[in-house]
């Protein structure tokens, strides 16, 4: 097996162009399980841990953040809790502290598992994925990135180089259901972002469909309710009926299956609860001006 160790992005892109079958490996926390149990025998591995361009983040001109694909979760938690509150919340639930020292958002996107913890937040905040190859650079909205179970639009000669996240204009939340406090593959998960600037909301559902999903109907419903009640301007507590309806619409947007981690019916029910709760927390956060945000 070939082991490719580029030390610059340019070299990494050439290597991927020369050997498109090479499996990129950053933290290795996903790829290594497949290697250890012989579920996968790649002809080549492309080590991205020595590519400095992938291991940085920087603010963008419009107030957003360009997060290098190789920044480990621990750094997202310690350095980006205020800039990217939703992503930092999701990062805190990934694997264990040991896994978070190695694992990356680029790896989460590369694996494109519907159960990946960062996908619901990336969907909710309308992030974009930067893909590069020797042919050039393209930016794909994350909402168009996933194409099937562990499938994405990533071409065989491309590498995921960064994630572009808009400035957090309002509260964000993430919540997930699992059987243990660490090393849990989500039974289901939910991400929520409030956008007071344009009066909209964003959602993302994890582990309840062939790909991570948006709950579009739920977004429209909540956007309408908040506008009709003039609630952005004079925020009052949301009624139980609004929160419940939001939860129901999120559950309806899911397309879960029965598997070892949970039944489809349980996932739908749990999602309605997660959606209702995260909305309660986020709205409370908005009403109190973020004083109680623990990011």
């Amino acid at each position: 097996m070939d082991f490719l160790r580029p030390t610059s992005l340019a070299d990494a892109l050439s290597a991927k162009a020369d050997q498109p079958e090479a499996v990129p490996i950053a933290g290795g926390t996903d790829v290594m399980v497949e290697l250890n149990f012989d579920h996968r025998r790649p002809s080549a591995l492309l080590d991205l841990t020595r590519v400095p361009e992938l291991a940085t983040w920087e603010p963008t001109a419009d107030g957003g953040t360009r997060l290098g694909a190789g920044v480990p979760y621990t750094r997202i938690i310690t350095e980006l809790g205020a800039r990217l509150p939703g992503l930092a919340m999701a990062a805190r639930t990934v694997g264990s502290p040991q896994i978070r020292n190695r694992g990356t958002v680029g790896g989460n996107l590369g694996a494109a598992s519907p159960a990946g913890d960062t996908h619901p937040v990336l969907l909710a905040v309308d992030a974009a994925v930067e893909l590069r190859s020797v042919r050039g650079t393209r930016v794909v909205p994350v909402r168009e990135f996933y194409t099937g179970v562990k499938r994405s639009v990533l071409a065989s000669d491309e590498l995921i180089t960064a994630v572009l996240l808009p400035r957090a204009g309002g509260p964000q939340q993430f919540s997930k259901v699992g059987t243990r406090n660490a090393m849990v593959i989500a039974v289901c998960s939910f991400g929520l972002a409030l956008h007071p600037g344009d009066g909209t909301v964003g959602t993302g559902i994890g582990s309840a469909g062939p790909t991570p999903l948006r709950a579009t109907e739920a977004e429209w419903f909540l956007t309408g309710e908040l506008a009709d009640g003039d609630l952005w301007e004079s925020p009052k507590p949301l009624t139980d009926s609004v929160r419940r309806r939001f939860g129901e619409l999120v559950a309806e947007a899911a397309a879960p299956i029965d598997d070892v981690r949970g039944s489809a019916a349980y996932r739908r029910h749990a999602l309605s609860v997660l959606a209702r709760r995260t909305l309660g927390w986020a709205w409370q956060d908005y009403r109190t001006g973020g004083d109680q945000r623990c990011a």
């Binding site: 082991f3 160790r5 490996i25 290795g28 290594m32 080590d47 264990s96 896994i99 190695r102």
Partner: peptide, 25 residues
Amino acid sequence: RGQCGACTVHVDGRRVVSCLTLLAT
């Protein structure tokens, strides 16, 4: 497979699970 933590060591001062860390990296 990274779930139990029995193989935890420090790499450059940070704790990692050595079963999911490739020596070559």
